[in-house]
Design a protein around this nucleic acid. Structure first.
Lengths: 334, 334
DNA sequence: ATCTTATAGTTAAGCGCTTAACTACAGCAA
DNA sequence: TTGCTGTAGTTAAGCGCTTAACTATAAGAT
């Protein structure tokens, strides 16, 4: 494998000159540049990233941190959506993605993650930092690693989505369809901060319409499809006259739809069901789900662009994305 | 940030001794070990992985290579399933996952991937190498990077699934239910080697039952849900009396189911639909899909264990997993 | 008692690159 | 003409760790 030194010899210059040409930093003439680049091609030279990392502290690696607290990270297509946006941007800029899925407790985060953070191996971090019990950004605060947060724990740089508005629009949608007997399929409030904001939006929309939110029945799942079905089952046993379910993500909505069909009733004729996140399956589910589009790939991409701005010494403003209500066929009038 | 040298000073030994203690290589006394470990903890020392990579050629990073030829890598829950198994094993062994999604052409692979391969940044590679036009392992063959292939391009070390048997069982299942008017929803044969093997299994089962496989109508999608719906639509227009669809993945099966319902017919009453891969949604789709379980998380985990065996100088045998037919509610007698 | 091998720890070279400091010269302003 | 600043390229130190080769001693075999 060719080294910088080999390129230098072939081009008839010093290693510093080769390094300057490759990084396009002053000074070199055009004829020197051409000789160097010809040598690079002839030798098939590729920089050793470990040496570069050691010498310059730059690794061309971005860590994407998805806390592994519930099953979501490897079950939720939402994860892939965010990665899709991040990957497109990183690849375009010649960076690599290191995927980190730390386990969390109230006291902290696993040792493996801590070692990664301190390893000198990461130029920057994009985190989906949404677990209430602990912020994966906590160990990073005393480091100088640039971070962009797609979650809602406090962070200097972030790309958020307006979960409150999403919750508000979902509830408003059902209320405008005439529903008042609405079951809420939620998750425990120590599972996910975004979910908590969605609940606040649900509450606000209910209150704005003069509906007593606290009187609405709630069941807590864990974002999984099966938990959505179980919640729907529980709610319908306790409140057989419910005419709608509002679910905090699409997968629980799909579970709810499945349960409703299983007991011989129909969505949306008998019970409307709405979800959140607009995962790919939402559009082709039967019936296609009414949901909130939170623009996951776009947020992934823009978080990555923000991170590169920070890496380049800029000071980008935080971004809060609006969400869009996507009305499909799983909701209708009472 | 503490360096090895700081630990050495605090423990009153040389840096070589600290390195020996941390890597547990000969020789050191127990009292030396304890003094070193106390210093490590007091200083919060974490090895600089770039320096270690440069000095020893070991990076604690595994590259997971998912070629990005169709939408699948970021749309297919199967991707997440494989990653789930890989991640569990890597994290347990203190390794990190670098996610690489190279773009392919018949002539080769993108520059970014080539740079990664040659960067000295990867201890080993796990590849889902299934795209017929080019093998992502090709640029690696002249390198000494250990590789385990989850796809079906030739590789010294591999964990495969028996796609042929899966195809065979799917077709056999439908034939045993009495179906003969079977539409096949496939993909172009230059898209995915596993799909090609599944087709061969379909053909073999048909021939074993005395059914003229070439007389069966075929439409080609691209593994996406929408293409599955489009294929079902096309096939039903041309062959309205079809009683079954066999689809080469679950997402196309879901699209087919959606299309059948959309034209007012029912699955499986009017048309049976079977898929492949058993993605999480398959079990809760309406109706739940009959499919082939190809054990994605297990294969991810075992591919990773195999890679670590190779990294540790062992010579593991390749593994070919059986697949399992999962009969659910989307298929029934004609 | 002597020789050989193992144990315990240390010194220092080097992994491959970046970049500060340097040498030499060119161009411009006073 | 002289002094200052910029251009072009080079030298060499160092980033942080690993580990070969070294020194010293201990233990075992003859």
């Amino acid at each position: 494998m060719a080294k910088l030194e080999d390129v230098a010899k072939r081009a008839g210059v010093s290693t510093a000159t080769v390094s300057k040409v490759l990084s396009n930093t002053p000074y070199f003439t055009e004829s020197t540049r051409q000789r160097v680049m010809r040598a690079v091609e002839e030798l098939g030279y590729v920089p050793n990233l470990a040496a570069r990392a050691l010498a310059a502290g730059k690794t061309s690696i971005i860590a994407v941190v998805f806390p592994h607290v519930y099953d979501g990270v490897f079950q939720d297509p939402h994860t892939l959506h965010i990665l899709q946006g991040i990957e497109a941007e990183c690849t375009q800029r010649g960076y690599n993605i290191l995927l980190s899925t730390p386990r969390l407790t109230p006291d902290g985060v696993d040792e493996h993650y801590l070692r990664l953070i301190q390893s000198g191996y990461i130029d920057g971090i994009i985190a989906l930092d949404n677990v209430p019990i602990y912020s994966v950004l906590e160990p990073i605060r005393s480091k100088s690693i640039p971070v962009v947060n797609l979650g809602t724990h406090p962070s200097e740089h972030y790309v958020h989505t307006n979960d409150y508005s999403g919750g508000f629009q979902l509830m408003q949608h059902l209320l405008e369809l005439g529903h008042r007997a609405i079951g809420i399929i939620s998750v425990p409030n120590d599972l996910n901060l975004s979910a908590n904001h969605r609940m606040e939006g649900l509450r606000a929309a209910a209150q704005a319409a003069g509906v007593d939110f606290d009187a609405l029945p709630i069941a807590e799942g864990d974002f999984s499809i099966t938990s959505g079905a179980a919640c729907a089952d529980l709610l319908l046993q306790q409140f057989p006259t419910l005419t709608a379910f509002v679910c905090l993500n699409d997968r629980m909505a799909m579970g709810a739809v499945q349960l409703v069909h299983r007991i011989g009733r129909r969505v949306p004729d008998d019970i409307s069901v709405v979800g959140y996140d607009d995962i790919p399956m939402a559009a082709v589910f039967d019936p296609p789900l009414t949901t909130i589009d939170a623009h996951a790939p776009t947020r992934g991409r823009d978080a990555t662009r923000m991170l590169f701005d920070v890496l380049n010494g800029k000071f980008p403003d935080p971004v809060v994305y609006p969400v869009d209500l996507i009305v499909r066929e799983s909701s209708t009038h009472t």
